[in-house]
Design a protein around this nucleic acid. Sequence first.
DNA 1: TCGATGGATGAATGCGATTTCAGCACGGCC
DNA 2: GGCCGTGCTGAAATCGCATTCATCCATCGA
Lengths: 371, 371
Amino acid sequence: MVVTLRDVARAAGVSPATASRALSAPDLVAPARREHVQQVARDLGYRPNRAARELITGRTGNLCLVVPDLENPFFAAVAKGVQARARALGFALLVADAEEDPRLESELVGHLGAQVDGVILCSPRMADAALDRLGRDVLDDDVPLLLVNRLHSGLPSVVIDNADGVRQAVTHLYALGHRRIGYAGGPVGSWSDAQRRRGLEHASHGLRSVEVVDLGHFPPLFGGGVAAGDLVAASGVTAVLAHNDLLALGILSRLRARGVRVPEDVSVVGYDDIPAATLVSPALTTVTVPLARLGRAAVDLLIEAGSVPTAAESALAAALTAAERTRHPAPAITIGDIGAGAVPPSVLIGVELVVRASTGVAPAQSSAAGG
Amino acid sequence: MVVTLRDVARAAGVSPATASRALSAPDLVAPARREHVQQVARDLGYRPNRAARELITGRTGNLCLVVPDLENPFFAAVAKGVQARARALGFALLVADAEEDPRLESELVGHLGAQVDGVILCSPRMADAALDRLGRDVLDDDVPLLLVNRLHSGLPSVVIDNADGVRQAVTHLYALGHRRIGYAGGPVGSWSDAQRRRGLEHASHGLRSVEVVDLGHFPPLFGGGVAAGDLVAASGVTAVLAHNDLLALGILSRLRARGVRVPEDVSVVGYDDIPAATLVSPALTTVTVPLARLGRAAVDLLIEAGSVPTAAESALAAALTAAERTRHPAPAITIGDIGAGAVPPSVLIGVELVVRASTGVAPAQSSAAGG
DNA sequence: TCGATGGATGAATGCGATTTCAGCACGGCC
DNA sequence: GGCCGTGCTGAAATCGCATTCATCCATCGA
């Protein structure tokens, strides 16, 4: 029923060894014979058995992506980029949703890591110690692990320039006259949140008489913005920077519900620039992150860092790769050591503030500014 | 370095055969010895080699999901449901993004189908003929193919009750006094669009003096709604039903930009109930589709229809399955033949209209209603 | 007490591809 | 002319596991 390499060999009148070589190491076989075998293979509709190949070569041709929540537009966008690049390079992609659960993350990496050539772990919620363990014990040594949106000593990673993002946002608000600026943070323990807080502090130090009000930690979801919105109203800030867009949208919604006008009374800035940011009114001023590029860069770096041989066995895959590379040339990214003692190569993805309608000049006099 | 079954066998003082049985056919080996082998395997950190197992059993433990666009919240939600159920049943999930390209769809199913135990094809854009070919030529006979959101003779499928959805929507609008109702359709050739048109026609026949105005076909994206919005304004309808929420949101946005008030001047109804539907103002009245359930049902039916033995080899997977089943009991769905000559089992997922702020009573007198 | 029965075990085989290793033919070089 | 390298090819081993088949031993029934 199913045609195997032996069948091809027999039909072509050569040994299985030669047939194998003709297909996967063409220069080892005489041109005429090679062509013939390839033709026969095509005619017979031969499809190499991946399991058999994997058994002996040890490579699966699969990559794996673990995200906290597939439905979150941030991760969906990253996943799309990762998937596209993986396919272009001849890899299939296993996708797993960790449901925001640190333990499930480890478990998934452990399970899936055993059957792939590389793992991309996006925005891991797990603690540093768990991350250490992953690299050391859980994964085979020849399965590279790459982090997205998190920096960890000893692991290659692709991160966005959080500090610069908040700097741009705060500078923008400062220029609009805001002096008391709230920060609605992400979950406790979130690495990117810590990054942004640090960037925020640093940026505000550079600006005269700017006060940053920490509104606390919130789930980075629309629902989290409701609680945050009330705190915004109560805190007397004239502007708020949210950990991400979903949170910002929730704040927007809550403020409107309470009769607080945006941007007349309060300005709101998000982070990520998810599609929904432009769907609301007022459209959200936010820090745009090239998420698809992030995903593509992750795959590229994973392949490179892990020196995973691309499974570009088929001419198709090769062609796709070329096309993909052309359409998406190497992004303008910084490569190198970006702190935290990261020895393996890391890529820093630049971000950009997009000003929309949710930010405006600060109200004339903030009552909370003190008499 | 890596511990194999032989190692376990040697360490436990049994033959590889017994070790194999102790782990994957426990009742064939004496209790004491079984326990011992299992303990040794645990101690040694034995992880069965999937490739070897696959090579001999022919099963991969992987399923595959192909969607037109991972970033589309509709498909993201389905993917999440599929992934969750697949994992609960012990399967890993390969996800592929077909980029709305019918040819790429076929290609992906062909490529990935060779390395999975079953394929779920969601909202295929390809023609019926291509779908036929998939089932016949492209896939191995033992790799079941299941459709989501599309019905096709000879293939099992999970579909949503499109006709009932539009019926509910139209009835709602009728009750609000609307008589001229526009329909902003999905892409040409979209199966679900055809379904909804049919349901629309049928529903409107049952309502006195209702006129349905076909506004044409649009890309089911926010951008498509801009063009559609202008047509809504020009057509003199007092209400519009959009093919999906993204389109509806685009219409909403365009109408606002043109100074048309929603719902005072025009009512808008979406379809799918994506998260963004509640983020906008006015919040979108829409037909809510239980997308995660849709995904779970797809996996269940695929396993069942293809009689794919669940890879619930580990106790963990089994436990997860039980837990998952408990948390998500069998949905209230209709199983059976639902037309189009579908012989394999198909599941029909019920939908429900959720009324929010984008629909209201029809304006007193529509000028387009004629003298 | 002996043969039949059946449960538990081990040796051997095969899944389908890759990859040594050895062999063969040919050509160049001394 | 003989020797050696070079270029191709085929036989066979291998990857790790499941499974068939044969064996063995204990137990039961007569």
